[in-house]
Write a protein that binds this DNA or RNA. Structure first.
Length: 119
RNA sequence: CGAGUCGACUAGACAGUCGCUGUCUGCGCAAGCAGAUGGAGGAAAGUCCGGGCUCCAUAGGGUAGGGUGCCAGGUAACGCCUGGGGGGCGUAAGCCCACGACAAGUGCAGCAGAGAGUAGACCGCCACGUUCGCGUGGUAAGGGUGAAAGGGUGCGGUAAGAGCGCACCGCGCUCCUGGCAACAGUGAGUGGCAAGGUAAACUCCACCCGGAGCAAGACCAAAUAGGCUUCCAUUGGCGUGACCCGCGCUGGAAGCGGGUAGGUUGCUAGAGGCUUGCGGUGACGCAGGUCCCAGAUGAAUGACUGUCCACGACAGAACCCGGCUUACUGUCGACUCGCUUU
């Protein structure tokens, strides 16, 4: 298993997909900077959706940066996650973290999600 | 060397690994796979102006409303830019200015002050009266108040004064000269002379502006079906979006019940970039050559590692251009002033 690509099949694509996760959010994991909602899905692989609110991260540059880092991390960890749909919500203050810090913290959250999904 | 002014450029570089996305080519029924190649900014920002484009009528007349405001030019257009005039700031390079009209009308102005607008006697000065306390009148030269007090200086004049008269300066008007014009002038004549300020106060004058925006709009699939009830009625209703006219279409409105909200396009070849020549003081224009340079849509241009250096600021396209404003890194050039040295 050496495929680490991130095609559209690994993303939540429309409001219907997002609504499904919000309504059936069995798994909730969070820290000071972000909140993860997730639920099991019919698909073979995990899928990711991001909500970085303008209210919480004011500058577009920071919003893009955070999205890219989370996507990159998801791409590398995708085989440790099972068939769950995941939404990551950014909280206020996340734009003050350095890139490396964001990496470390999102990695911890992935592990927690994987543990909860196993049960 | 220091302080400053103006202009131009720049926005870490290179290598490797793993990813995202547009296009092209090949393979494949298809999903997709492989290769090649392109992939944020000078402000992409604020959304403050102007235009293109789209629909509303091919946007036409009037009112209301809004904008602009020295002159000439540039431009698709502008509130932008260039050149010029006038005023102000700075030793200077240079910078700043909504810079039409308050001798059309209306309004506004704290404190001080006698008086703040067809001026005005508190002190003073002068004349007359006087019970010697002062009263009546004249007077804007002097004092005082104030941001601002009705042209300035001198001479004449007078009871004391005053553009009351005169000279010079200043100001208004007419003409002349220069300039396309704004405007300028040791120009000529004329008027005693102007009784304030404020128009980003109402207003007046001149010029300009139809509205809404890519969630505009177009197409495909689906659907608005069919049906029932009630009301109004062709002088009505809708398009219509500040209002009236005008124009176009047509029976219209409400309720009951059933049902859907996915995709394609618009979407990037343009008032385009670079370059050469010519015209112009310049903004810019004309002609030739050459290049194709993001097009996402839960939203791409990133992450990590290594090396180097000046150790990397502000900041992310969403239909597209031209400006303005704001944020901010570094470099270079020209010029100004000061100091030191020669």
């Amino acid at each position: 298993m050496s495929n680490f690509s991130f095609p559209k099949t690994l993303r939540l694509l429309n409001s219907h997909d997002f609504k499904q996760v919000f309504d059936n959010a069995k798994i909730k994991v969070s820290n000071a900077e972000m909140l993860i909602l997730a639920c099991r899905s019919q698909h073979a692989s995990p899928r990711l959706g991001l909500i970085i609110a303008k209210k919480n991260v004011r500058l577009a540059v920071h919003r893009n940066r955070i999205k890219r880092i989370i996507r990159e991390s998801f791409r590398r960890q995708q085989h440790n996650l099972t068939n769950v749909d995941i939404i990551v919500l950014a909280k206020r203050g996340i734009d003050r973290l350095e890139n490396q810090e964001v990496h470390e913290r999102i990695d911890k959250l992935w592990r927690k999600v994987a543990q909860k999904a196993q049960r």
